[in-house]
């Protein structure tokens, strides 16, 4: 476990957080290299299915980040996204996902330092939590036959 390096997927919006991450780069701020950034036109475009796909394909943690409220390039995309995450997080909590692995944040184009800090903190947190295995364990589960399943039901 000591040499476990978490894989973090960051879903960011083009106008704020991506530019913020760019600023972190041009300002020579060093942050953990564990993050893979996926750029979206807007946080409103980030479908919840993408988060599930990231976890399914081996991400240990996720960062979702976009413009601060009232700063959206398209006026309201982040407000819609905020509602979506409120509902989605409630569902994930209810189903028993470890929602601590998903970091939601607002990072503006001027907040290169905040971006670096969020990445570093997320990586540290996931490093403590260890690899995300709930989904990879699912992959190993066999497909039960109908009779097996029915027997398990009635037992």
């Amino acid at each position: 476990m000591s040499n476990f390096e978490p894989k973090i997927i960051a879903f960011v919006c083009n106008w704020c957080t991506y530019a913020g991450a760019d600023l972190a780069g041009t300002s020579r701020i060093k942050y953990a290299p564990n993050v893979r950034i996926v750029r979206f036109p807007c946080t409103g475009r980030i479908d919840f299915m993408l988060l599930l796909k990231a976890l399914q394909t081996g991400a240990d943690g996720i960062i979702v980040s976009g413009c601060h409220p009232a700063d959206c390039h398209y006026t309201a995309g982040n407000y819609h996204a905020r509602r979506r995450w409120i509902i989605f997080k409630s569902l994930l909590d209810f189903v028993g996902f470890d929602t601590g692995r998903i970091t939601f944040s607002w990072v503006s184009a001027a907040e290169g330092a905040k971006w670096a800090q969020i990445v570093n903190e997320t990586v540290d947190k996931i490093r403590d939590l260890g690899p995300y295995t709930d989904y990879s364990n699912l992959n190993k589960l066999g497909v039960g036959t109908i009779t097996e399943v029915l027997n398990a039901r009635t037992a």
Partner: peptide, 16 residues
């Protein structure tokens, strides 16, 4: 519909 509308002052406690 909750997800097609929004309020500017929607509250959450998990976005940093």
């Amino acid at each position: 519909y909750a997800l097609s509308t929004f309020k500017v002052d929607d509250k959450e406690n998990f976005i940093r």
